[in-house]
Design a protein around this nucleic acid. Structure first.
Lengths: 336, 336
DNA sequence: CTGAAAGCGCTTACAG
DNA sequence: CTGAAAGCGCTTACAG
């Protein structure tokens, strides 16, 4: 890379100290009362030499990098891809750049991502935490590194977070199914202690109980790394045979999609054989032969709130906020 | 953020110079022949103080940041989301971190992204260039900043790139349609001078000509920022009325999806009323009531090659490589 | 209004 | 084998 022009180059050219150049470049010529002539000369020289400040040097000196570390489960998953996009835009609006990483829901990967990003001196983190990472989050807090959790959080660790009211979302979905006459309602969720999953399951169970359907509760749990296989088993258990269910709620985007593959394979009629409700939006839901009813998350709001809260913290606020967002139930034919 | 431990802290604790600590931390104790005892003491102290090197300082000193700048059209688009994921993994494997940004196919946005990333001293760029950004790319080259273009490139600017053989892909798709008996074949593309689009269109036209169907050529061009509206008009022009076509090739992922919405609206039977071939994979293609035939890009290979070529350049290679990847035509019922 | 100088946390020739 | 010191490119208190 060819030699870049530095503050010193400008200072030399104009014949002043680097201090003055720095003031002018940073728009402090008023406060520092830099001479009008000098300001003009510096401006001209900066333009001529095509000066671009070196953020790395500035970061080292100021101790802040104007960078946000974003850790999601998988950037290729549309839910996280969309969230990342919102976060990117909002961060950029506030003068921040974002470095991202995918944890694959693995606590080890997440740990090494966190380490790498700390070494890169990110000013703060937005994290979709993997299971079993409470200690990592606590460690971050002890180091006083600003952070906000998204999508999920830990009850035992007091942090800023912004998440969906997952309990309410599931409860609403099940209530809707029941209102439409379904009673034998199953659910397929990920096997996970993470709060978002627990809450989605709890919403299902409580809604069933509230309608005196506790005997119809049929919950199947799928392993994240074996989504397809486990989901297929689960669907076979639930949707076939004597005790088959008549409606189902999937707990995530990816579970819904893999569930749809099973449904195709089993050749089930939707909603006649089985009513379905999915989680999160997905273009695939629109094109399934019966358009899918699904729980829509306010991704835009989630991303913006997360960035906003993080930047507040970076700017020194010690306020802790827990934000729960409301879902929207997009009702279509799959749950009629 | 509480005070982090620095090299100096360790040096003070052990009673040696920071030079020795640096050597040990960087595994150069052999070359620099640091005393065995000293090495041990330094290691212990580093562990005790939980030392984490400050990458910013190292970057400033070494003039390299081990960071890659990635600019795509839109990280929320599944094609780019998947590409980003591959790039993330490959970069991480080689010790690099990635900072990303979305240009929205806008040259102004791309320019400001490039500037921001240059100021952050990325070691190199992987760019999916927007239309009209030749000069930006040239400027990057003049600054000797390593770079590889992906998905598209510019004929007038000699750079490293890795892209699909788009001409071949379209040609193959059209040939397949013709083999299946379709003759009135239309295409919907983006209105763009970018090479990938031009090549996709050229493949269509040449394939039609090669089969003496030049009189049946019906190309519609859609504006990126008005995808939905323009696509609807285009579909109305092509698929309705006297001169209606019997098959269509969509030029991208997003065009295919928005086309599917139109097809639903128009209530067309696939493939009886209209055969379709899409571009790139998308879960939605699997669930459309007639599974879609589509052109699959080798995203994994594309991302890995891009990172590999970039890192070679960063490491000093001046070799220029143009890599064209082959597609796979996934044949299903929509083109029967 | 302006300059000299310290210092952010590293790496690395140089000298011994 | 080890240390003193320069320097990466900035910012910023301090002195005048």
């Amino acid at each position: 890379m060819s030699k870049r022009t530095s503050l010193k180059d400008i200072a030399d050219k104009v014949g002043v100290s680097t201090a003055l150049v720095s003031y002018v470049i940073n728009g402090q010529e008023k406060e520092k009362r830099v001479g009008k002539e000098v300001v003009k000369k510096i401006r001209t020289a900066a333009l001529e030499l095509n000066y671009q400040p070196n953020q790395i040097a500035r970061s080292l000196r100021k101790g802040s990098t104007k960078t946000i570390g974003l850790i999601v489960a998988d950037i290729a998953n549309p839910f996280f891809g969309n969230l990342a996009r919102v976060i990117e835009d909002e961060a950029s609006r506030l003068g921040y750049t974002v470095i991202f990483g995918s944890s694959d829901e693995d606590s080890g990967k997440m740990e090494s991502l966190v380490d790498i990003l700390i070494n890169r001196q990110v000013d703060g983190f937005i994290i979709v935490p993997a299971e079993g990472t409470e200690l990592q989050i606590k460690a971050l807090q002890e180091k006083k590194i600003p952070l906000v959790l998204t999508d999920r959080y830990f009850i035992d660790v007091t942090t800023n977070y912004v998440a969906l009211d997952n309990y309410g979302a599931s409860f609403d979905a099940i209530t809707h199914l029941i209102a439409n006459g379904y009673k034998k309602i199953g659910m397929i969720a990920y096997k996970s202690n993470l709060i978002h999953m627990q809450e989605r399951v709890r919403g299902y169970i409580e809604a069933m109980k509230a309608n005196n359907l506790e005997n119809e509760i049929r919950l199947e749990e799928v392993r994240y790394n074996y989504t397809m296989i486990d989901n297929e088993k689960a669907m076979n258990n639930l949707a076939i045979g004597e005790k088959k269910i008549d409606a189902i709620l999937f707990a995530t985007n990816s579970l819904t999609v893999s569930g749809l593959y099973c449904i195709k394979k089993l050749n089930l009629k939707i909603p006649e054989d089985l009513a379905i409700i999915g989680f999160d939006g997905n273009e695939a839901f629109d094109f399934f032969y019966t358009p899918l009813t699904y729980i829509e998350q306010p991704i835009e709001e989630m991303g913006k709130e997360a960035v906003g809260m993080l930047v507040e913290q970076i700017d020194g606020s010690t306020k802790i906020a827990h934000i729960k967002l409301r879902h929207t139930l997009i009702k279509r034919q799959s749950s009629l």
